[in-house]
Amino acid sequence: MAPKINIKQLNLFYGDKQALFNVSLTLPAFQTTALIGPSGCGKSSFLRCLNRMNDIIPNIHLEGQVLLEGQDIYAPSVDVVALRTRVGMVFQKPNPFPRSIYENVAYGPRIHSLFKTKAQLDNIVENSLIRAGLWGEVKDRLSQPATRLSGGQQQRLCIARAIAVNPEVILMDEPCSALDPIATAKVEELIDELREKFTIVIVTHNLQQAARVSQQTAFFHSGYLVEAGETGALFTMPEDERTQGYITGRYG
């Protein structure tokens, strides 16, 4: 499978504190990559390097390369706004805007002028909600505030919002950690379907989840990428003893 994103020798510093050490990883297109590892090992930091969400944080410093289809996203000529439409993000805690369901999904298309007529926008909103598996539940109340939805629905709305701008890659940081098992199952199912159209990177603390939804898994430990490989292989025959320890629950 062709690589979608190629990370080369990535080092990340918060002020003087180094959070990532020489991380190199390839993310194949139309596959889901799971990032696992103990708390504070740098999974979120790594994920946020992939669409430059770290730019918002002051005193951050980065070395190495992140190539999106061969193009370095940290090159000075890169337009961050355009980059983030290509690489979307779903966060740990559902964060719908305090506006209507419709306006939440329409937000991205509106700021990027992705439509000409109202009918086209309606179409984008409907399709995104259908793909996020939420259409049936909200089609009669699109004008209601998004904050009235349940947590699971809110998270699927955030996924719909992310896919409405038609990204190529979707980054998800523990998207199910605030959800109950039923809502989690729905989101997992959704991730599996989305793989047809998108390249997905998901951070999770739930190892079963990583095993269920991903094709590739990467194990991080104190800022280092210890081991990455095909998910089945990594869970059954880890090469590094730290990986072995983590997946058998000896620490983490």
């Binding site: 969400m53 706004v81 983030r84 979307g88 993000m89 966060f91 964060n95 719908p96 991205g108 700021i111």
Partner: peptide, 17 residues
């Protein structure tokens, strides 16, 4: 909440948007 800012920036919005 900071996550509102993140949500918007994550969709490619500028600060002013």
């Amino acid at each position: 909440p900071f996550n509102l800012r993140e949500g918007s920036m994550g969709l490619g919005a500028t600060s002013s948007e």
